[in-house]
Design a protein around this nucleic acid. Structure first.
Lengths: 343, 343
DNA sequence: TTGACAAGGTTAAACGTTTTACCTATCCTC
DNA sequence: GAGGATAGGTAAAACGTTTAACCTTGTCAA
């Protein structure tokens, strides 16, 4: 048996489908008696409007396309969750795609979602190639984009960011204050830097600035590339620990890599934090639970999601223009056991 | 400027829209010359079919509705990811809703997704009330449902499960073998049991069976309820450790609760694993990274996602009927440092 | 030579909404 | 009592596809 449609309601209630539509979208011109009658039959028949038809006719639905590079990373999961909840409050739903850290996949998913008439987009981190974004804004599409966690520096896309440079600065300064002298850094994959000229790793920049201000020096080998995952952190650990001048502290670009690095260091016979202090980035839930508990920059995950949702909603309401500078949120350092004061 | 539509292509290529449609869906009757001509104009104009219109006409799209109770739990995140990838291979995309562990929200989301004409559903764990599912099958809807990780015991919904009872049995037997005598269990929230008569916690059942077979006994207070999150584990720890006869090992219903419990135990001055051995369930990535590394039942997360996707695809192809017994996957125990042999 | 049939198209009707333009009373104003 | 307004509604055209039904040709067998 097919779903009951607006026609069914109309004929049952002995009105035109236009009237039913008016009742559903509560237009102001329907008289009270008819409105009640129609509403009653709607309830009786259990009629629910077909959103697909509605979307097709109005060319605007309630869906937002979300593309994320690695849903498995609790950081992303938490931001997506915050996003979803706030979108829900705006009456919107969420089409999710995970690119598994593959750029071209991001482009494909983007096209697919466009075909599905999503009203807007939210992109996380390194999920979609800059070229795709650029092409989209060049096309002057009516479909707004909000990127979170990364600044593509494109006029035409809105951005929500944590103040990563400052956070990184604080983290590394903290290490310096606690007496660490040889501070290394695990950053993102190399590919990332090729992909954009803009804001090439704020974390790296903050790291450098903090070192400079503390009067510390670090050889080039102290900056190694990871893949944002625990595995990459472990590999980085091997690289760093085989250096002639072994670092006494590492600032990792995210918590997952910090976890991997801590474990690898322990496997290599070092004690964390005595032989090697570690700082992470993100403050995923488990950061407080590992041993030693991880000092890290607390990304405002839910808040990022909320901000992205609100920003997108504003753009969709048409009220506001795309802000030409990103929205910034703070990522305060939370100090835990992995960075004790140096003896 | 509006998107180019099938009409544009038709008039440009001097054919009817039916022919364009035929080319797009590569029907067999179009002659080679026209096919090429049409394809050429499609490429030139950059035409991409509007999926919404297509869905509306054919009453079947490519979207699958996915409802999950807590995306923040890496276990779910990983299964969702596996699901998404396999669905993608089947040419399908994924509408995601996170209920934040709230049942009624699951029901609402379910209705919403139905209105959006999803082709099928995948439900995770405790995301949707049984009543909603039951009503849906009673309605003999054409929209199939696959539940993963929980057996509602309803004819009419397909199910993918890990063999949790066996896994739990193995885990607890392992503890017994290693010499632990007072083994406690942290299970899910109470509400869960009210919600369904069926399969009330296979993990609990496995725990009981293992105890029985090992000739061990456990007071009722040894089974406490958690909320599947680290916080719940911590609360459970407090309860268990204040018992007159303190347990010497705990089998936790999932890893997150195990993390919380380990931390709380340490805060209470106990050493893990010397004073208290801990076993988790799921094998989330961080389980190997915490200290001590957590012994746990390795849920086949990606495989569960894949199986769910494949099963759903089968049902959608109409080829097969709903299997009347669940698909079972194994969840082998992986032994790590949190459960050393008792001195 | 005819008629059947196939190959290759086209026309037009759906799909379930929203929305514009148009009706028809009734009431008010002058 | 003619001429608006106004209130409350309807008819029908969209939106962009797919698809069933219907047209042309040309070919080939009888």
């Amino acid at each position: 048996m097919p779903r009951t449609t607006i026609k069914d309601v109309a004929s049952e209630a002995a009105v035109s489908i236009a009237t039913v539509s008016a009742v559903v979208n509560d237009a102001d011109w329907v008289s009270a008696p008819t409105r009640d009658r129609v509403q009653a039959t709607i309830d009786r028949l259990g009629y629910r409007p077909n959103r697909v038809a509605r979307t097709m006719r109005t060319r605007r639905g309630d869906a937002v396309g979300v593309i994320v590079s690695d849903l498995t990373n609790p950081y992303f999961a938490e931001v997506v969750r915050g996003l979803q909840h706030r979108l829900r409050e705006h009456g919107r739903s969420l089409l999710l795609a995970d690119t598994n850290q593959q750029f071209e996949e991001g482009g494909r998913q983007f096209d697919l979602l466009l075909d599905k008439q999503v009203d807007g987009f939210v992109f996380f981190g390194d999920s979609v190639p800059e070229s795709v974004l650029a092409a989209h804004v060049r096309r002057r599409s009516r479909v707004p984009i909000v990127t979170v966690g990364r600044d593509y520096g494109l006029r035409g896309v809105a951005t929500v960011l944590a103040n990563a440079e400052t956070a990184a600065f604080d983290a590394v300064s903290h290490l310096a204050e606690r007496g660490y002298r040889r501070i290394a850094h695990v950053t993102g994959p190399v590919a990332e830097f090729g992909a954009t000229t803009h804001g090439a790793s704020p974390r790296l920049a903050g790291y450098r600035r903090a070192l400079a201000e503390a009067g510390l020096d670090a050889p080039d080998e102290y900056v190694v590339h990871g893949d944002w995952r625990a595995e990459g952190g472990a590999v980085a650990a091997v690289d760093l620990l085989s250096l002639p001048q072994r670092p006494d502290a590492v600032f990792c670009g995210n918590d997952l890599m910090a976890f991997g690095l801590m474990r690898a260091a322990r496997v290599a016979g070092l004690d964390v934090p005595t032989d090697l202090a570690v700082v992470g980035f993100d403050d995923v839930p488990t950061a407080a639970l590992v041993h030693p508990a991880l000092t890290t920059c607390a990304m405002p995950k839910a808040a990022l999601g909320h901000a992205a949702a609100d920003l997108l909603q504003q753009l969709l309401d048409g009220g506001s223009d795309i802000p030409d500078s990103p929205v910034f949120l703070d990522a305060p350092l939370v100090v835990r056991a992995s960075t004790p004061a140096r003896a």
